[in-house]
Nucleic acid binder design. Sequence first.
DNA 1: TTTGTTGT
Length: 244
Amino acid sequence: MKHLLFAILSLSLSISASAAICNQHLVKGTPNNSDQILCRDGYAAGYNYQNKVSNWVAYHITKESVNAFYKRSNSFRTDKDLPPAFRATSSDYSKSGYDRGHLAPSGTMDFSQVAMQQSFLMSNMAPQLPGFNRGGWKGLEEKVREWANTYNELYVVSGPIWDGNETYIGNGVYIPHRFYKVILDPTANDAIAFILPHRKISSSELPSFITTVDEVEQVTQLDFFSALPDSVENDIEAQTWNMW
DNA sequence: TTTGTTGT
């Protein structure tokens, strides 16, 4: 009986702990329910069973979190929290010509060893061309870490844009034609958004991909920052933060 | 590289 009570207590504690972790990243709103929401220390993800890639990953970062770092593990792991039929695996990507590109970046999730390791779950990956992943995509995330230093605290949501005629690698991992990133400064209530074409891009091209949160919502059918008061949400989503 | 990967 003691053991049973202990088991129930631990289970409820672990459930409330993971809900609390999700709450931290989703406090400004959940973009949509997707097929399954995954809660990690460094980010929350809305996973797409059909495409085997997350529709969105959301992460709250601070000046402190981006300035702490653990050594990159490079240990990519299948996400066992997903039903087996819908899991992407490293072998899907192997010899495909595409990188296992992080949606929530390792370099931003490395404030603890656990958070860094969780960034290597395959549910946080999308097929990305090397010239994209190691070029402009990486450059934009470096910019995000700089902005976290400048503005103290940010909410970021990032993911693929699906247009319905993608091809796939391996056992059905779909290749996005475009990717988005939306960034909110909760202190000043300012936002900026990017839509990046999935091709080789350099960091110097990034300013040409700036757009509004409204535009990203239109092409993804997601709803960002819905927990903000409507007037604030409408205002920030229609303009671009002059931060570049 | 306080980063991002693949292939041997």
